[in-house]
Amino acid sequence: MSTPPLDSSGPAEPLPSTAELLARGDITGIMRACHERRLEREGIPMVLTLADERGPLVTATDDDRRVEGGAYADVLERYAAALTPWARDDDEGALITAMQVLAYTHFAPGAAPVTEEDAR
């Protein structure tokens, strides 16, 4: 299910909340909402990865952190499959788009914390 285009000419209807979009599985709608934000009032959340160019990356010592990272990975994989199935693995623009939706949905203020359930 997907949100109608934002330029439809009928009377304006209240935009659905992120939670409503998420409940509907409307990942495209979440992407649109994420890109419509007023950037002078809201920050752009991102869950950045850590890359060590000096050598092997150290794995987190904390089990909870790895579990949470696993849930982020599962959700990102699902969002990438929904939004950017056309993309090469190394398409940075596509990766950024999926990561923005991930952070907007599961990290921005008021967003639901990521859980393993989200990945299903």
Binding site: M46, L48, T49, T59, R66, G69, D89, D90, L95, F107
Partner: peptide, 27 residues
Amino acid sequence: MTLPALSSTLERYRRGAFIRVVNYHST
């Protein structure tokens, strides 16, 4: 060098190698 890619991003998430940021411009 670590180039941006979906597969390696997923791997680093699963290893717990992530940090949350919020990017702002004019406030």
